[in-house]
Design a protein around this nucleic acid. Structure first.
Lengths: 195, 195
DNA sequence: CGTCTATTTGAATGTACTCAAAAGCGGTGG
DNA sequence: CCACCGCTTTTGAGTACATTCAAATAGACG
């Protein structure tokens, strides 16, 4: 077993494109593994986001702190998810989101330069990232529609069935902020659901 | 002037990747131009979405008809925008959205097979679509956050400044459904804003 | 001019929010 | 082992933003 075991990432990539052994080695050479402690920030609002991260284990949440000081959760990430402030990462501009670890979390990281280098060396990776971002975009549009067409309770029920593992790892008030409702109201929804 | 003038598309692509003359010819050979009349549907909910479309002129809206029969506008598209039901197009499954022309609209269309062929022939196109979908995804996430953190009036004001051309082309009730509010309430917001 | 669709208006209603306070829960130290 | 602390969740009362419904008005088009 290697200290920098990138098998989970390679397996994941293999679902989308087929890499040669040489290409796998090249990725291994350029990706770095990093451990964050519970509470640490991978990205902070205002900084330029340096990494595109693939989560090996643990849990993160991406949130936005608005002018009035309230938090809005943009996404969570667990095992085999990607996380970053993609807008900041790709355009090298200050991040608008924070990415915080909710548990001790291990990630594999690509810097911007690394990723550009790898795109150049392994054109298949362009295809790979195109495919996963297509999926992310489709999911994001669906979330917009859900937010419009569902009541708070329906959104919560849908969230539970869609992301059962996340529901268990994450405090309730963060789920509320992911759903776009207040923690108090989510608590009332749950009370009502018990009957 | 060619009957199938794809210059607007080539110019657009040129902002992201540099194509050779041969590559441009190849695209020209495989893309088709099509004119839709006002009111026509490019995609209908339930059908498999056959085309990825680049809008040359005119205007479209993408919307979702929910179980209770109300419409939710997912996006609009004008000159130099892309439109499709991307989830349906990429996975060859029934569309969940309708794409309807709000004006006579000319588009350049790629079928799934065409696009796969072109990805294969012109790997730079993988990069191109990766880049534009990255942007679309970032915009989509921002919209989610806006919807959470802004009041209806703030969302409307933001929409006006972000998409002034669209506001002029599109009936008010569709803007309301894009913002996730009722047409009546948007009307009240506008009344209040006149003072 | 008449018809169809889009927009406006107002009254009643509802879903979700705010604020403040209490209760629960997990960890830490005396 | 209990007491205390900080953080999360629950509760309730009052409120606000936005919806629903029904009807009137305005605009576009043949």
């Amino acid at each position: 077993m290697n200290d920098k075991d990138i098998a989970p990432l390679l397996e994941y990539i293999d679902n989308y494109v087929k890499l040669t052994e040489g290409e796998k080695k090249l990725i291994e050479l350029h990706v770095s593994k990093r451990k964050y402690l519970k509470g640490q920030y991978i990205v902070q609002q205002g900084d330029i986001c340096d990494y595109e991260c693939f989560v090996i284990n643990g849990c993160t949440r991406t949130f936005y702190l608005d002018a009035s000081g309230s938090e809005h959760t943009v996404m969570f990430a667990i095992k085999n998810w990607w996380t970053s402030d993609l807008g900041s990462f790709t355009t090298r501009t200050p991040a608008i989101y924070n990415v915080q670890c909710l548990d001790n979390t291990e990630v594999l990281q690509f810097t911007y330069e690394t990723l550009e280098f790898l795109y150049d060396q392994i054109p298949k990776l362009e295809r790979f990232f195109r495919l996963i971002i297509e999926r992310a975009f489709v999911a994001s549009e669906k979330r917009i529609v859900s937010n419009f067409s569902l009541t708070a309770k329906e959104k919560y029920v849908k969230f539970q069935s869609q992301y059962p593992e996340i529901e268990q790892k994450v405090p309730q008030y963060m789920i509320a902020s992911y759903l776009g409702i207040t923690k108090e109201f989510l608590s009332k929804i749950r009370r009502e659901m018990k009957k």
